[in-house]
Amino acid sequence: MTGVVVAEWTKFRSLRSVLVTVGLTVVLAVVFGVLISSGQARQYAELTAAERAAFDPTYVSLIGCFTFAQLAIGALGVLSVTSEYATGTIRPSLAAVPRRGRLLAAKAVVLGAAAFVAANVAVFAAYLGGQPTLSGMDAPSSTLDDPHVLRAVLGAGWWLTAVALLGVGVGMLVRSTAGAFTVVVASTLLVPLVSGLLPEWFARWWPTTAGQQVLRVVRDPDALPPFAGIAWMYAAVAAVLLLGHLSLRLRDA
């Protein structure tokens, strides 16, 4: 297994798109984290007492992570698989590693580790950029020493890593970069956007929406608890990876 992981790492870091997507993940998280923090700070004075009580400065600075940065890191997960199908290198990979489950596991390990590092750089940079923006505009801000704040920031990294792994599973199922990326965007961004039009239980149990609760310091009483939400999201991602494994075993390369 060690040799397979090393081989997958060599293939992964040789992709020209890796540095671009990793850089975009960090840049989008920071830029939009600051811009959204600035916009929310300007509106704070106009909020009602109830809205101020629900104001979550940590969550505000991390919104850019799951609104924009997730697009880049999801694409990274997709490309780690579909690039091999596009170039035909999946065939020699399967010849070298006949146990297809081991190949997929190695891809998930390499992509998960790389995404985890990139995601944590992105979320901490977004948080550290957003909080001074809020405090500088006389809106509430937080520090990492405050209750549940560190959990929320680390949770944003877990959430982004799950999106990247989702890209691996969907990429293995769809085998097309455009098609797989469309599925990832729809499931992580578009479906949550329209969840307000759907029954209340849908938003509570949709995996990516449930997972976002780990980013919140001020809890939504109608949503799953933070750790239960992120665990449910990882369970759903594991199910997609399992389907990807079955597809890899049953379909020709």
Rank of each mutant, 00 (worst) to 15 (best):
E200D: 14
R151G: 03
A105C: 12
L134Q: 12
A186W: 12
A119Q: 06
L160D: 03
A186L: 15
L215V: 01
L134V: 11
A106K: 04
V184Y: 00
L160A: 09
A162N: 09
Q212S: 13
W205G: 07
G169N: 11
R100D: 09
W159F: 15
A178C: 08
W159N: 10
R204Q: 15
P199C: 13
V185Q: 02
R204A: 06
M137G: 07
A113E: 03
P147T: 05
A122D: 14
P207G: 05
L173N: 00
S135G: 04
A125P: 11
S141N: 14
G167E: 04
L111T: 15
D146K: 07
L193C: 02
A122R: 10
A152H: 12
V149G: 02
L193D: 10
A180N: 05
V149A: 09
S195Y: 10
V214G: 05
L144D: 02
L160M: 09
R204Y: 13
L198M: 14
A210K: 02
V217W: 07
T161H: 10
Y127R: 09
V168C: 07
Y127C: 03
S176R: 11
R175G: 00
A139G: 11
L154W: 03
A139F: 08
Y127P: 15
V117A: 14
F124S: 06
V117W: 04
A162E: 07
S187Q: 06
L215Y: 12
W158G: 10
M137S: 08
S142C: 06
L173M: 15
G136F: 11
D145L: 11
M172N: 07
L160S: 02
P199M: 10
V110M: 09
T209L: 04
G101R: 05
G179K: 07
T177S: 15
V153Y: 04
